[in-house]
């Protein structure tokens, strides 16, 4: 998907919806009746205060705010001290995709669960550090799939977009005329059709 120009987070953004589906560990601070089925490890009908569960971010966001928070969220482990140290040491060597597919996007949500602003600082530090490497990878002509595999979804999006625009600039400088091309979707559709014919 393109980098959407509308307000952030875009209500309709697929990436944002998927990022907010990630699970956050949290503890219930009050009894919640009738919703025992949220806890797969118990058979009771009610959720007791003190139960620790992993809930999706969208639910945690709604329940942890307000005058009487229902749950108290914790930082997911990939944003905790230990992992932050790894990022601080050398962010560009890290396989961020293994940490979390939506590391930066999710991070911008969970940073509020951390009372000190350490998470936010680490995220900025990691992004600026890795960005330089990202630009290098985009510039290089040889394609190394392991570089791509180690990026989180935001970096992948940047990678694809800049690769594309770089190619466009290149053809324009080279030929200065741009050929009319078959529309991308038509091309895709044909390829798929050919696949089914065989």
């Amino acid at each position: 998907m393109s980098l959407q120009p509308s307000y952030l987070p875009n209500y309709f953004s697929i990436d944002d919806i998927l990022a907010s589906q990630e699970r956050i560990p949290c503890t219930f601070s009050v009894n919640v009746q009738k919703l025992g089925n949220l806890n797969p490890s118990s058979e009771e009908t009610d959720l007791k205060a003190g139960t620790a569960l992993e809930l999706p971010l969208w639910l945690v966001q709604d329940l942890s705010t307000g005058r009487q928070p229902v749950v108290i969220p914790e930082l997911p482990k990939v944003y905790k001290e230990g992992y932050r140290e790894i990022l601080k040491a050398d962010a560009s060597a890290v396989d961020l995709h293994k940490f979390n597919l939506y590391y930066f996007e999710l991070g911008s949500y969970v940073r509020v669960f951390d009372r000190k602003s350490d998470v936010a600082d680490t995220l900025i530090h990691a992004f600026t550090n890795r960005f330089r490497q990202l630009m290098d990878v985009i510039d290089s002509t040889e394609h190394n799939p392991t570089d791509f595999q180690r990026m989180d979804s935001l970096e992948r999006r940047l990678f694809k977009e800049s690769k594309e625009s770089r190619m466009k600039l290149h053809t324009w400088l080279e030929h200065s005329t741009t050929p009319i091309e078959t529309a991308a979707m038509v091309l895709n559709h044909k390829k798929r059709k050919r696949g089914t014919d065989l």
């Binding site: 209500y11 309709f12 919806i17 919640v32 919703l35 639910l59 709604d62 009487q68 229902v70």
Partner: peptide, 20 residues
């Protein structure tokens, strides 16, 4: 109230997904 709150945010989430 906490139960109602949970269900309500689930409804809102479902609406968002369907619209998206």
């Amino acid at each position: 109230l906490p139960t109602i709150k949970c269900r309500h945010s689930a409804v809102i989430r479902n609406i968002r997904c369907l619209l998206a």
